[in-house]
């Protein structure tokens, strides 16, 4: 697999009124085309900051990252669905296209197709409040996919859902990503979710974070996130990552 993205010694410091806080010490890793890579680390370790930097919303204090593609399109999915309540879910899905001035008939058809593929066609004219949490998250994904991203950044996209919806939606999202063959960087603090969805896992240290370890995930009979949890290697990965994270309760 070719690399789509190389991240080289990214460093991030935040400057407050009184002090300078080091959020990311140094992070380097590569992202291969078509893979799902998950950044795992404790809360507040700097995982989301890294995604913001890659998405171009924030700047790194030092270091660089390079896409091996000209003008890559980046899709960013956030912790909550961030759907606009005054728009229908179809209008919500077109938001990115409108901002990027790509709201063409052809793209609208593509969005409609996405709704159809993900069984949300009959809800297209509903408003977000009329949908369940899981459905809203799927709409958020359609909104991200609408701009046809080269890379997908998922910032704890299931954290706002209850456990059952979380499993179901992560399963759906996994299938969608694999079907569309989109390179994905996901941030999660849920080890099980990370193992069940990823091709590789980057374990980050506590703040200021650095890469502690990178795991290639090999699961026997790799299928979908729910089934993957039953793989015999699952518990072993879980224990190793748990140890790496050095979590004290």
């Amino acid at each position: 697999m070719n690399n789509l993205l190389d991240i080289h010694e990214i460093k991030k410091n935040y400057i407050t009124d009184k002090e300078e806080i080091e959020a990311i010490k140094s992070i380097s890793f590569s992202v291969k085309k078509g893979e799902i890579i998950t950044l795992v680390g404790s809360s507040g370790c700097g995982k989301s900051s890294l995604l913001s930097i890659i998405a171009g919303i924030d700047h790194a204090t030092n270091g660089s990252f390079q896409f091996h593609k000209e003008n890559p399109i980046i899709g960013y999915m956030l912790q909550n669905d961030a759907l606009f309540p005054w728009l229908t879910i179809y209008q919500n899905a077109l938001l990115g296209l409108k901002i990027q001035k790509k709201n063409t008939k052809e793209n609208q058809e593509y969005v409609k197709k996405l709704f159809k593929t993900y069984n949300l066609e009959e809800f297209m004219n509903k408003y977000p409040k009329e949908l369940s949490g899981g459905m809203k998250q799927r709409v958020a994904l359609i909104r991200t996919l609408a701009i046809k991203p080269d890379i997908l950044l998922l910032d704890e996209p299931f954290s706002a859902l209850d456990y059952q919806s979380r499993l179901a939606v992560s399963d759906d999202v996994f299938k969608i990503i694999k079907r569309e063959k989109i390179t994905t960087i996901m941030v999660s603090h849920d080890i099980a979710e990370a193992i069940s969805m990823s091709d590789r896992i980057v374990v980050l240290s506590k703040r200021p974070c650095y890469v502690k370890k990178i795991y290639d995930i090999y699961l026997t009979n790799k299928q979908n996130p729910i089934e993957n949890r039953k793989a015999k290697e699952f518990a072993d990965y879980y224990n190793k990552i748990w140890k790496d994270l050095d979590i004290f309760v």
């Binding site: 913001s52 998405a55 171009g56 919303i57 980046i74 899709g75 960013y76 956030l78 912790q79 909550n80 961030a82 606009f84 005054w86 938001l95 990115g96 409108k98 901002i99 990027q100 701009i147 950044l153």
Partner: peptide, 28 residues
């Protein structure tokens, strides 16, 4: 909501687009 601002920025929205698509309708 800051998350929504972040979302629009991730689409590459400029200040006027953020104002038009989010700030004004959200503050309605």
């Amino acid at each position: 909501d800051e998350t929504k601002i972040k979302l629009l920025k991730s689409f590459g929205a400029n200040k006027i687009q953020i104002l038009k698509h989010l700030i004004i309708p959200e503050s309605k």
